[in-house]
């Protein structure tokens, strides 16, 4: 953007947002939507799975959102958003053709290279599926590079499971296991009643040859990571995507610090081994 008065401070300034247009709005569940955004100048962002954008609307401030699509170098990107909080609710009210601002991509993303040639367990809870969807897409595009791949995905009810139309399709290439606290309605795949950690016994693979990625509510991360550690997986092989109140995205505002780590710069994806030595990591 920066077409105001051409001041040098606006060019390439990470604190100055850029403009994107809502190309498509997809309703995922009762309170969740996906926005397919296209950059005003259509230049690709060059983002990686697990990185995030600061999406915002002037006057509403900004909030961090992980990419829920794989970079296709057309300048488009998708964010899945659940209505909660000020800016998020406003984003959910947007319609096709409306404009949003974004800054990014920020962060490091999922360490996919570490998973190459190994087994991969993805654990997602609720909206935590959004940052893992590009991982699923990447795995499906490069299926031969990975060994056994599991997606363990839980939500409050069956209706709250996101990307419902794609789950069966994913199941053709990777093992998709679903759980919901309350099962109702029909899905092409079976849904187990209960929390997502109950799916772990159904994962039969050598944990020493496995990388785990997880994203979801704090309590889910605690229990799922705990269960995997008990089963013998090393804390260096468990990666979690953490939540903080990022405001700047460039390791300046200090809000997202966990010990010596900045979630916006060093994360939001961390190896469990790197963060458990600090305090105030999880709620």
């Amino acid at each position: 953007m920066g077409n105001g008065n051409g001041s040098d401070i606006l060019e390439d300034n990470p604190l100055i947002p850029q403009l994107a247009r809502v190309q498509k709005k997809i309703t995922e569940s009762a309170d969740t939507i996906s926005l397919r955004l296209v950059r005003a100048d259509s230049r690709p962002l060059g983002y990686r799975p697990g990185q995030f954008n600061m999406l915002g609307l002037p006057g509403f401030k900004e909030a961090p959102f992980s990419f829920s699509s794989l970079e296709d170098y057309t300048g488009t990107f998708v964010h899945t958003i659940r209505a909660a909080g000020n800016v998020v609710s406003a984003l959910c009210r947007l319609r096709q053709g409306d404009h949003v601002t974004f800054r990014g991509p920020f962060g490091t993303g999922w360490p996919l290279d570490k998973a190459l040639g190994r087994n991969l367990i993805l654990v997602a809870g609720g909206i935590g599926m959004a940052p893992l969807r590009p991982v699923v897409d990447y795995v499906r595009e490069n299926r031969d590079s990975f060994r056994d791949v599991f997606l363990l995905y839980g939500a409050k009810t069956t209706d709250d499971l996101l990307y419902r139309r794609q789950l069966a399709q994913w199941n053709e290439e990777i093992t998709v296991l679903l759980a919901a606290d309350r099962v109702r309605g029909e899905l092409p795949l079976p849904v187990q009643e209960g929390v997502v950690t109950k799916l772990l016994p159904r994962v039969h693979t050598a944990l020493s040859e496995t990388i785990s990625f997880m994203c979801g509510p704090q309590v889910m991360i605690k229990f799922a990571a705990g269960a995997l550690l008990l089963d013998g997986q090393s804390a260096g092989d468990i990666y979690v995507s953490l939540e903080r109140r990022m405001e700047c995205g460039v390791a300046q505002c200090g809000h997202c610090q966990i010990g010596a780590k900045f979630v916006c710069k060093d994360g939001p994806v961390f190896a469990l081994a790197d963060i458990t030595r600090f305090q105030d990591t999880l709620l």
């Binding site: 077409n3 105001g4 001041s7 006057g59």
Partner: peptide, 17 residues
């Protein structure tokens, strides 16, 4: 001040030079 934003035209103006 970081910037001023016009909500109608979505243009940005620099602040704090």
């Amino acid at each position: 001040r970081l910037c001023k934003i016009d909500r109608e035209t979505n243009t940005y103006m620099a602040a704090d030079p």
